[in-house]
Amino acid sequence: MPIYVNMDVMMARRHVGAGELAEKVGITPANLSILKNNKAKAVRFSTLEALCRELDCQPGDLLEYRPEETDR
C-alpha cells in the first residue's frame, strides 16, 4: 500500500501517548496500532477528523503517498 500514516511524528510533536490518543479519538489501542503500523486498509473520515482535532493538524500531515518501486 503506497499510502503511509505518519502518526509517530505528530504524536511525538504533541507529546501524546498511544493510549491517551486512542482514548481521546474514541478507537481501541489495537486499532490505533493497526493505523500506526500501516496495516490499515481504510480510514473512516470520522476517525481522521478526530485524529486531526486531537493532534491539531491537517490530514496531509498524517497521510503520505510514496509511489511503489517497480522492477523493470
Binding site: 493497526i34 490499515a40 486498509k41 481504510a42 480510514v43 473512516r44 476517525t47
Partner: peptide
C-alpha cells in the same frame, strides 16, 4: 471481512 477488520 478482512478489509472491514482493517478499517479504522
Amino acid at each position: 471481512k478482512d478489509e472491514l477488520d482493517l478499517t479504522v
